[in-house]
């Protein structure tokens, strides 16, 4: 082959850039119901498919098993069980966090799903898979209609 040899990598030219756009995502129809209930009423809403016996948390507009539309939303307890957890010492850009954070998958009671969220008011060494936890909400005026309207889950 006749490819030229590059002996000095600095001679390889580069173009610097990004792929930046700004995005505004809608929560969708089911998402909107969920986040408004969270913000305005401190409630977790789920959807339920009677036919398949599945309660969706977070709620979905349709059952992805039998593929029917799910029109009714039901309130479920804002508590659950730690199914798994991890302790993170770095942020997403690789910077050390001042305090380690506990992140868990919390299976929400009376549903077949759950939420990924922070765990608070507990020392990492006391954590157990299977522990019961309950949601701690932000003050009403701080709530924005997002998952962060729950500050964290704490031991029940």
């Amino acid at each position: 082959m006749s490819f030229d040899k590059i002996r000095d990598p600095r001679k390889i030219r580069h173009q610097i850039g990004d792929m930046e756009c700004d995005y505004i995502y809608t929560a969708g129809v089911a998402g909107e119901r969920f986040y408004i209930a969270l913000r305005d009423e401190e409630k977790l809403l789920a959807t339920r498919c009677e036919k398949c016996n599945i309660t969706f948390m977070p709620p979905r507009l349709y059952c992805d098993n039998c593929f029917t539309e799910l029109a009714s939303f039901m309130e479920v307890p804002s508590k659950g069980v730690i199914e798994s957890y991890t302790i993170t010492y770095f942020d997403r850009d690789g910077q050390a966090l001042p305090e380690p954070e506990i992140l868990a998958f919390v299976k929400i009671d009376k549903t077949d799903g759950g939420l990924i969220h922070r765990i608070g008011e507990i020392k990492p060494e006391s954590l157990k898979i299977g522990s019961k936890v309950t949601a701690v909400f932000e003050a009403k005026k701080e709530r924005k209609g997002a998952l962060t309207d729950i500050k964290y889950f704490k031991p029940a």
């Binding site: 030219r13 930046e20 995005y23 505004i24 809608t26 998402g31 408004i36």
Partner: peptide
């Protein structure tokens, strides 16, 4: 979409790239 009327989430990706020109474009 930009009002409080509907629930939305905002995001700006911040990855940066250095595209190598390669052999032919480099020359």
């Amino acid at each position: 979409l930009k009002s409080d009327k509907i629930i939305t989430f905002e995001w700006r990706p911040n990855a940066k790239y250095a595209w190598s020109a390669g052999i032919a474009y480099g020359r």
